[in-house]
Design a protein around this nucleic acid. Structure first.
Lengths: 226, 226
DNA sequence: TGCAAATCCGACCGGCGAGTAAGATATCAA
DNA sequence: TTGATATCTTACTCGCCGGTCGGATTTGCA
């Protein structure tokens, strides 16, 4: 019994009559599905759940998608497209590596705040078939590599302190991905504030010359946990 | 068809004879289950999978656990216990807030590198019943609040730059939680190196006086992504 | 040794969910 | 208006998995 989200109403309307409009209906399915998947997870969402939300029955869905997996793959495609576009435009800029990374952080947080962005991060691609998984993971890997390249360019131009770009990329991406688990568009926190703090804190961690006092910390607590 | 992990061999041995040893066997189930859950996810792992790996049959498992959920809850409990212990010892120290947070980062990465730590972060508590979910989420929330308190103490003592402690905690936790998706104990990356870079980069982002050049960045890219 | 309790197994149940078959109904182009 | 086609529904199949039943076997204590 999925809750009635006001934002999903227009999609229901679309299916109210049987006028032929396959493209719009396909898109309506996607927007509805991604919302439910984010709320309930892909695995725990049945095709019936999606259909019910759209005021139709399960078999009708199979007019627009071959199977459940195709819906998920399409969602991933739309989400990763957004990220790719952002990276395209950042790479085209003439800026220092650090500034590019800062722009990436700002853009990425905003994308992750949207449904399809959140979906890329939060939905479990382990549910996919071998083929689908391979596809999706390749796109994720490509994004990771492009972020690494941004960081490396910053190290070269001296705007970013020397470090392992691979780990740095994991740290940045991880921090932002975390948003997908707690950020709620309808919530009270202002996205601009969140984005600003992400940029400030993470860029500061990357920047040249940071951490003067902490630079020669003694080897951290040698206590054993686990 | 779970792969035969060498590390799981001793647990299989335990069940080779029927000698009475319920505590050790229960623990063996947990260690085996957490490994498989991490590899295949909780939902996609059947009780048969766990039993097979232990060289027993499904009903035998029900001698040690009432149901599948009890296994998962127990895994969460063990994992969060590790984190709680770490926080206990950090809070007992006499250090600046920043140093405490740095110790937290170091300890947390190490815990997340272990099976039960990784499980806390990666396994989906949405699979739990309402009661179980409430329990687990309460413990996670408590950890989050304790981290926030560490950060706030650092802001007060001047070691950490003024910021929203709530968001800062999300950033830290998110960055470290990301590890759970890519770190492999058997892999080639050295845990000490990883931990060191996490501490360096994240502490620098928090520290007072960081980010001199970037301080007055123009409002970040007003482009629209999604 | 004998026997109660612990341990374990083979076979089964019930429910759920993806996907399909076959047919009813509406749309739209001619 | 009419028929070809798209759309949608009702009613199913099939496989998987959590959990249980009843019984067989072993253990360890008296």
């Amino acid at each position: 019994m999925p809750k009635q989200s006001a934002a999903l109403r227009p999609h229901r309307q679309l299916f109210a009559d049987r006028r032929r409009n396959p493209d719009a209906k396909r898109e309506a399915v996607l927007h509805t599905a991604v919302r439910i998947f984010l709320e309930r997870s892909y695995a725990r969402t049945s095709m019936n759940d999606v259909a019910t939300q759209l005021n139709i029955t399960k078999p009708a869905l199979y007019h627009y998608f071959r199977n459940k997996e195709e819906i998920l793959v399409e969602i991933y495609r739309l989400g990763t497209d957004l990220i790719d576009e952002m990276l395209d435009s950042i790479e085209a800029d003439e800026k220092t590596g650090l500034d590019k990374v800062a722009d990436f952080i700002a853009g990425y947080t905003r994308i992750i705040a949207g449904d399809f962005g959140r979906a890329v991060v939060r939905l479990d691609d382990g549910e996919l078939s071998k083929a689908g998984r391979k596809l999706v993971r390749a796109r994720k890997r490509e994004i990771d590599h492009r972020l690494r390249a941004l960081i490396e360019s910053g190290i070269e131009d001296g705007s970013i302190a020397s470090c392992d770009a691979k780990i740095a990329a994991f740290i940045l991406a991880g921090a932002i991905h975390g948003m997908a688990s707690w950020y709620e568009p309808a919530g009270s926190m202002d996205l601009a504030d969140i984005t600003a703090q992400y940029v400030r804190m993470l860029a500061a961690g990357l920047a040249m010359g940071g951490l003067p006092a902490l630079a020669e910390r003694q080897p951290i607590a040698p206590r054993r946990f686990e």
